[in-house]
């Protein structure tokens, strides 16, 4: 049971992620639509874990990640992105993301869900 923030410009994906997290016993504090909201919500709620999409309007995930970490260096952030952007993911991990979740989010695939859960768990324990 952790308090979480989901930042994704796709309303559908954000809701699906929220549903997944809630089924797994976590609390989703807010859904952010872009990087600006991500930073604002982070400052407002101080979630245990933030799931951060990379490609977003206004402020993308990389900038959002940097700002969150500048505000709180112990922030736990998981980057959600397609692995074909391995450069970006690598950059985010170097910046200080706790891990990444590979897109597409296949919530119907049990193996994917298991990986997702493990990633969340290990990010929370970190």
């Amino acid at each position: 049971m952790a308090r979480m923030l989901v930042v994704d410009d796709s309303d559908y994906l954000a809701k699906a992620t929220k549903q997944f997290l809630e089924t797994n016993g976590h609390e989703v504090l807010a859904l952010g639509k872009d990087g600006n909201e991500g930073v604002d919500f982070y400052k407002k709620y101080h979630p245990d874990l933030t799931l951060l999409d990379i490609t977003m309007p206004n402020k993308d995930g990389r900038d959002c990640l940097s700002e969150i970490l500048a505000y709180d260096e112990n922030a736990r952030v998981l980057v959600v992105s397609a692995v074909r952007d391995s450069d970006i993911i690598m950059e985010c991990l170097e910046t200080g993301a706790k891990g990444y979740v590979e897109k597409p989010l296949k919530f119907r695939d049990e193996e994917f869900c298991q990986n997702f859960r493990e990633t969340i768990q290990s990010a929370l324990e970190d």
Binding site: V83, S86, D87, I89, M90, L93, E94, K98, G99, Y100, V101, E102, N115, E118, T119, S122, A123, E125, D126
Partner: peptide, 25 residues
């Protein structure tokens, strides 16, 4: 260059802990 960045990360305990998902990188 990706590989060397990967190696750099791989040496970090945090990365080691969750190697399985990082391997995809």
């Amino acid at each position: 260059s990706l590989f060397h960045r990967w190696l750099k990360l791989a040496r970090q305990p945090r990365f080691l802990k969750n190697w399985k998902s990082h391997e995809k990188l």
